[in-house]
């Protein structure tokens, strides 16, 4: 089950990013193996979301290297050409905190938009693929509905299906349950656990410590733009070595 032996899929070295004078990422190194789930935790403003966005080119890092598999290596020492960033983006798919579904398209159209319009797959095939994925998350009967007609949890599951339909190598999750009503969080987390069991490689920015402990293989704690602590999920979450990690976890577990 643990993918500790599988080949490295994502390698990040010396990643830096600042917005104006504000240095958001100091120097981040990271390795994710195929089939591994990495949970990235840390307080808001720590840089974890920026890290995630740098992995697929939504933000362009100022320095550092991102490698995916053996074939793609993007060096940010100079601003990479658009085509390199596109290649980077095509390796992954992101699920947002707010699902960002396209409101003017039906659930099915949301899912098939990328495969048909961007990847040029045959419409019938993409459609069948999408319906199978929707079936799997229990939303096949809502294929013709518009996003506004779904609950928040359903919207987020469609957001995940939209990412899966792109057949990416890596799934990136940016606090996918933070904007949901508490009683809807479970459905989404369950789906993510199933995806992990299916062997998807996932990087998950989250505040859900129980999820991180049970599903993630490794946990990275980000503070002030660097990874302060990294290790096996159980180790980091139950016996954190770093004082800042300890304080953060205590605050999440005992908010009062």
């Amino acid at each position: 089950m643990s993918p500790t032996e599988s080949p490295v899929l994502l390698r990040v070295a010396g990643l830096r990013k600042s917005f104006g004078a504000h240095q958001v990422l100091e120097s981040v190194d990271l390795t994710v193996r195929t089939g591994e789930v990495l949970a990235v935790i840390g307080s808001s403003g720590s840089g974890k979301t920026t890290l995630l966005r740098c992995l697929n080119g939504l933000e362009v890092a100022d320095a550092g290297v991102v490698e995916v598999g053996d074939s793609l290596r993007v060096d940010f020492a100079t601003r990479p050409p658009r085509r390199r960033l596109d290649a980077l983006r095509d390796r992954s798919a992101m699920v947002f905190q707010h699902d960002n579904l396209f409101p003017h398209k039906t659930v099915l159209e949301n899912v098939t938009e990328g495969p048909v319009v961007v990847q040029r797959r045959p419409a019938a095939e993409a459609r069948a693929d999408a319906l199978r994925l929707l079936e799997r998350v229990g939303l096949a009967d809502r294929a013709g509905a518009y996003p506004s007609q779904l609950s928040g949890g359903q919207q987020q599951r469609v957001g995940i299906v939209r990412a899966l339909a792109l057949r990416p190598q890596i799934l990136l999750f940016d606090e996918p349950t933070s904007a949901l009503d508490p009683e809807l969080v479970g459905d989404v987390l369950t789906l993510m656990r199933d995806l992990a069991e299916d062997g998807w490689t996932m990087v998950v920015v989250t505040h859900e410590l129980p999820f991180a402990r049970e599903v993630a293989h490794h946990v990275a704690f980000v503070d002030e733009g660097t990874i302060v602590e990294y290790g096996r999920a159980r180790d980091v979450l139950t016996e954190p070595r770093n004082e800042r990690t300890r304080r953060f976890i205590r605050r999440l577990l005992h908010p009062l």
């Binding site: 697929n56 939504l58 596109d86 983006r89 095509d90 798919a93 992101m94 947002f96 707010h98 960002n100 579904l101 396209f102 938009e113 990328g114 319009v117 961007v118 990847q119 939209r162 990412a163 792109l166």
Partner: peptide, 17 residues
Amino acid sequence: PKGQWEAAYVIGMARRT
């Protein structure tokens, strides 16, 4: 909303598309 641009980029669209 800006998220709509980002969602479009994430599914691989170029700016024009």
